[in-house]
Amino acid sequence: MTRNRIPAVARFLRRRIWQVVPVVFGIALLNFLILQLAPGDVVDVLAGEAGAATPEYMAQLRASFGLDRPLPVQLAYYLKNTAMLDLGFSFRQNMPVLQLILERLPATLLLMIAAMGCAVVSGVVLGVISARFVHRAADRAVSVFVLVTYALPTFWLGLMAIVLFSARLGWLPSSGMTDIGADLGGFEYLWDVARHTVLPALSLATFYLAVYTKLVRTAMLEYFGADFIRTARAKGATETRITLFHALRNALLPLMTMLGLQLGSILSGAVLVESVFSWPGLGRLAFESILARDFNLLLGILLFSSVMVTILNIFVDVVYAVLDPRIEL
């Protein structure tokens, strides 16, 4: 079974990769047009920072950046460059956009994976506990806990975590991804990064944690009433075995669907958390590029993240098919 599914997966991937192209093109077009609606451009910001810029100087800057050309021409250039995988140049940061993004990408990926992993694992554990002891004390405690974490704004939770764990207790660092000035190597470097990751990842995870807990709880409760659970019980399986191998195994399917849908939104959640914890990731870079009207960079980030989300969704589809044999790729 698993063996003869591999060609199916390959065929599916080939088909889906081609579908990415028009999707990304559409996103690029929309991004460009929407950003044109925002007032101001990078020249306004640069001139404002310089303090004394003459209109002539600003016009000259615009001409050198190509911002004086008519909109359709700018769009044509943008699409052409994008098609050639050239994301352009950030005049603000004085670096190619792609290089900027690739520098920041690992930090964001680390934060995303850590946060999502944490949310999924604890969501599953709490959801299973809730479902197993439904309407009992443990279920109620979990309910209150996830409701509180869900209701608290992520940035506020992050700030409070900094106050408690960094300022008061001094257990964990509050900002950045590594200790400034420390030149560590190997294992010590990993440990340093891990310590820096804890607070931002947990802050980002809290919101999703609640969703996953409730989702797993509901799905598990539904499956506990299912016929195949009764069959498993009639076979003589223990409740633990029924919970893990039969109910949870099936409850992972809706969880996977939700996870795929939320991969996009976790990037936007990262903007807040990265700002609060001065995390050197894509989210903060996007935020900075908006403030600076650095549209080249912003467009680059938006396009890059949309490609990332699209690809991750394809990956989720494959995982889904592996988890659920009824799904044909």
Binding site: M1, A226, D227, F228, R230, T231, A232, R233, A234, K235, G236, A237, T238, H246, R249, N250, L253, L323, D324, P325, R326
Partner: peptide, 25 residues
């Protein structure tokens, strides 16, 4: 009772599709 279930006394059900776990062979 678990040592009786499925060993000495077994059961079959009305709906064979829903009585099987859909994600296991």
């Amino acid at each position: 009772i678990r040592s009786i279930r499925g060993d000495r006394v077994a059961m079959i059900f009305q709906e064979p599709l829903s009585a099987f776990n859909p994600v296991q062979t």
